[in-house]
């Protein structure tokens, strides 16, 4: 029978938690994570379907076929879009169906995480974490695929925090705000939205860039989960329980 420790309590300094099962992720984090998996996948794929209606991007307030586009693409293939064939009306239905789950999900998660201390405890950078030496060490550890063990494994490392914070507090809110900026109804009600992004066509461009930045985050995120142990990581995001990795034995250690 494994011993159980709460990650909320300060990690025991003398006792090595390696090998024990700990409650890693709270219900709020897990629930939001999986709502996001479905909402963001739907939004991204239906978004590419919408993009296919006019695969050109502009800066500024206006932009159409006779204006200068900074990016001109072919249509994205059907296996990347929702629906799997060109149907702008259905892509929009999927997009606007998923959007409230994503936007209000993020809002509720943020309020919840402020109240339960998740942001302060797990995501805020700690003293010394942003020192160049510490960041360099973390980069070196990542490059060697040397993952933390024991009590260290229960904390997000600095690169991980940086990736989560950039996504959580920058990319996702920007996606929501630029999405609202493309709505002519919202433009009239909240003209400051258009001003922030420098025009509706700029907002559309930034929406596109931010969406792909989330895809880049997703790819790194999945790679890290696979490298860190997909079963343990998946279990911790499903049930909350995480087995604290121990020091690698000689057999497992890489040459």
């Amino acid at each position: 029978m494994a011993t159980i420790v709460q990650s909320d309590a300060p990690a025991p300094s003398e006792a090595d938690p390696s090998g024990t099962l700990v409650k890693r992720h709270r219900l709020s984090t897990r629930l939001w994570h999986w709502i996001n998996v479905f909402a963001l996948a739907t939004l991204f794929m239906s978004g590419l379907g919408i993009f296919n209606a006019h695969p050109r991007l502009y800066w500024g307030h206006y932009g159409a076929n006779f204006d200068h586009a900074w990016l001109v693409l072919e249509r994205f293939p059907g296996w990347l879009t929702l629906p799997g064939h060109y149907n702008l009306a259905m892509s929009r239905h999927w997009h606007f169906f998923a959007a409230p789950f994503f936007a209000f999900g993020l809002l509720v998660y943020m309020i919840w995480s402020l109240i339960n201390g998740h942001f302060r405890r797990d995501l805020a950078f700690r003293k010394g974490e942003l020192a160049p030496g510490h960041i360099a060490q973390d980069i070196a550890d990542h490059a060697r695929l040397r993952f933390p063990t024991g009590a260290e494994a229960l904390r997000y490392n600095v690169l991980q925090k940086g990736a989560y914070n950039k996504t959580l507090f920058l990319l996702l809110p920007v996606l929501i705000l630029t999405g609202m900026t493309m709505s002519p109804g919202m433009n009239a009600a909240f003209p400051w939205l258009v001003e922030i992004f420098g025009g509706r066509q700029s907002a559309r461009s930034i929406h596109f860039i931010a969406a792909w930045a989330v895809v880049a985050f997703f790819i790194v995120h999945i790679a890290m989960v696979l490298l860190a142990g997909p079963f343990n990581e998946l279990r911790s995001m499903l049930s909350g329980w995480y087995r604290v990795p121990g020091k690698p034995t000689a057999r497992e250690e890489r040459p």
Binding site: I50, F51, A53, H54, R56, Y58, H61, Y62, G63, A64, N65, L88, R92, M182, P184, N187, R200, Q201, R204
Partner: peptide, 12 residues
């Protein structure tokens, strides 16, 4: 005013 097409483009 700005005319916004459902396809994504805008013209003023």
């Amino acid at each position: 005013t700005r005319h916004d097409c459902v396809e994504g483009w805008s013209a003023i």
